[in-house]
């Protein structure tokens, strides 16, 4: 492999990592605050993608540039409506109950959403590439890339990363979320409404999943079953990083994206194996993930 190919692989890895990061960070955030592994996260991703495509197809005839706000709108709608519903009506009655019940109820939500998606959007692949087509291609060593994939997606991922950091570290709402994460009892006793924090956090996490889907929608065909693959991949990334670790998730997503790209260039047969093998190796050595702090939760 020469240096030209290495640079191409890096570009491919980055654009892939950007999408994976957006979805995984939502999962990680929800776990960090609510201590719930949201199995329906992949379905929120799929719903975000489908709704974004529906919106873009609707607004594209007016002006193709309207598809960008449409993507954003779709992810917020899904985050608030679906995410809000799951937290409020499915998870909330279960707080304080067995962890496995919380996890399973999101599994039930996953099954239902997977089915609803087929009933709502049908089974024929849907494709809405307007946003992708608006931006020009860039050429690197004679190889064309879409700037949507190599510039816009990583840009959004970086903005999300720094936005979340700023929000959690430098705003009051963020400080409240951090407080509940650190110690629920203590923060409740000083008057923080933990339920509201859970609600808001879940909506943010769900919106991020939907945003990942919305941004992916111009690059791929939307098909039944797209959520089931995304959830385990994003889970692998979040767990490898350490659940609840935002910066860690970004670095891990990058690591998995790059490894995957190089593997496709060198040994394409092992592509699918990469994230899971990394996950096993990391968890065996560091069960709390690469960036997880050991005291997160012991017994």
């Amino acid at each position: 492999m020469n240096s030209t190919l290495a640079i191409l692989a890096v570009l491919d890895g980055i654009s892939y990592a950007a999408l994976v990061f957006l979805v995984s960070v939502g999962l990680s955030l929800i776990f960090g605050v609510l201590r719930v592994v949201n199995v329906a996260h992949g379905s929120l991703y799929a719903f975000g993608a489908y709704l974004a495509a529906t919106f873009s197809i609707k607004v594209a005839p007016l002006s193709p540039w309207l598809t960008y706000p449409a993507l954003l709108a779709a992810s917020v709608v899904i985050g608030v409506v679906c995410g809000g519903f799951i937290e409020r009506f499915l998870l909330r009655p279960l707080y304080g109950r067995d962890d496995v019940l919380q996890l399973l109820i999101t599994f039930a939500a996953f099954m239902i959403m997977d089915n609803l998606q087929r009933l709502i959007w049908g089974v024929q692949p849907i494709f809405a590439a307007e946003p992708l087509k608006l931006l020009p291609n860039v050429t690197v060593f004679g190889v064309n890339y879409t700037s949507y994939q190599v510039i816009l997606l990583p840009g959004v991922a970086l903005m999300t990363l720094f936005g979340l950091r700023y929000f959690l570290r430098h705003t009051l709402a963020g400080a409240v979320i951090m407080a509940v994460t650190e110690d629920r009892e203590a923060s409740t006793s000083i008057g923080i409404d933990a339920r509201r924090v859970y609600f808001v956090t879940f909506i943010i996490g769900a919106s991020l999943a939907a945003l990942g889907g919305a941004l992916a929608s111009p690059t791929t065909s939307l098909v039944p079953g797209m959520g089931a693959d995304m959830i385990v991949l994003s889970f692998a990334v979040a767990a490898t990083a350490g659940l609840g670790q935002i910066e860690g998730t970004a670095l891990t997503a990058l690591m998995i994206g790059l490894t995957r790209a190089f593997v496709i260039y060198l040994q394409p047969e092992f592509e699918v194996l990469v994230p899971y093998l990394l996950m096993v190796l990391v968890l065996l050595v560091r069960p709390y993930g690469l960036f997880g702090a050991t005291q997160v939760r012991k017994i």
């Binding site: 009655p93 279960l94 399973l104 109820i105 599994f107 099954m111 239902i112 997977d114």
Partner: peptide
């Protein structure tokens, strides 16, 4: 044929809740 997952999901939610 096209909604068995939905039914199972709802059954599960009812059981859990």
């Amino acid at each position: 044929a096209d909604s068995w997952q939905l039914i199972l999901g709802v059954v599960l939610i009812v059981i859990i809740l």
